[in-house]
Amino acid sequence: MLLDIDPPIVNASGILSFLDIFQLLDRKGATIGGYVTKSISPGERLGNENPVVVECGAEEYPTLNSLALPSQTPEEWLEELKQTHLKRSKLIVSVNGVSPDGVSRIIKMVEPYADGFELNMSCPNLVPGEESVMAIVGRHPEAASRVVRSARRATGKPVIAKLSPDTRYVEIGQACLAAGADYLGCGNTMPGMFIHSRGPVLAGQSGGVSGPALKPVNLKMVYDIYAELRCPIVAYGGIMTWEDAVEYFLAGARVVGLGTFFAHRSTSDIVRDTAAIWKGIQDYLNGEPLESVVGAAHRKSSMEMTRSH
């Protein structure tokens, strides 16, 4: 089952994060068709000590983070979910995919309040002394497929399996689809590091690279996955303009997610600038349905190849 996300723009999980922020943006009319929560973990997590975000580029884009999945308890999330009402947009609940049992328990608990779920099997960040969910689950087809199966048994609602670009993502993606995922999320941040004052800046040592630096990496991921698996894809990674979004659609995405885009933007900036992104996409479509461009880059390249032979 697919999500009716209209317009096909969401926030990336861990960005904006909280239900009260979604509710405000929804009320103010941001052009965001679906909101994705922070990943809910089976128990309370504090995440890493600050600094957890570094702006290491000349352009002041935050390009590296290591929050390492802080989360209030599922019970606290449930209380907030009960009080949240989005007028226009869908609500996708992200779940920390670290264990099949945890995933199924959390999904069953919050199911009535979610339009769909995203399974985070790809966060590269860790609190010192632990392993990342990417390392535990996201790099192993069998572990990933167990988590998806557990989610699939717990809900009939759409499920997105969010993968890491730093894996054999076609193989992992195939396992997730076979286990019942409706979408593949392509993808999470890419592991990276920043050294300053003679040591790694982030408390987790390494972090996740996001923003414009991530775009070509995840664009290729979307392209590769679409080429091999032809499945519904939610694309994330450095989408700052409508042109970036269109590239991802052409590569095979049906929905695009914004992350670093939100940096330094106030609520009113978000309302204005998400409308501009959607307008740019619509102008590009020029009356054609979105489906006409999804994956179009593949058709073009095969045509060109035919011609050149």
């Binding site: 960005i15 009260d20 979604f22 975000v53 983070n65 939100f262 940096a263």
Partner: peptide, 13 residues
């Protein structure tokens, strides 16, 4: 994050 990304500092959204 202090730059509008993580949502930690929200007050009524």
């Amino acid at each position: 994050c202090a730059v509008g990304l993580c949502g930690q500092c929200t007050c009524n959204g």
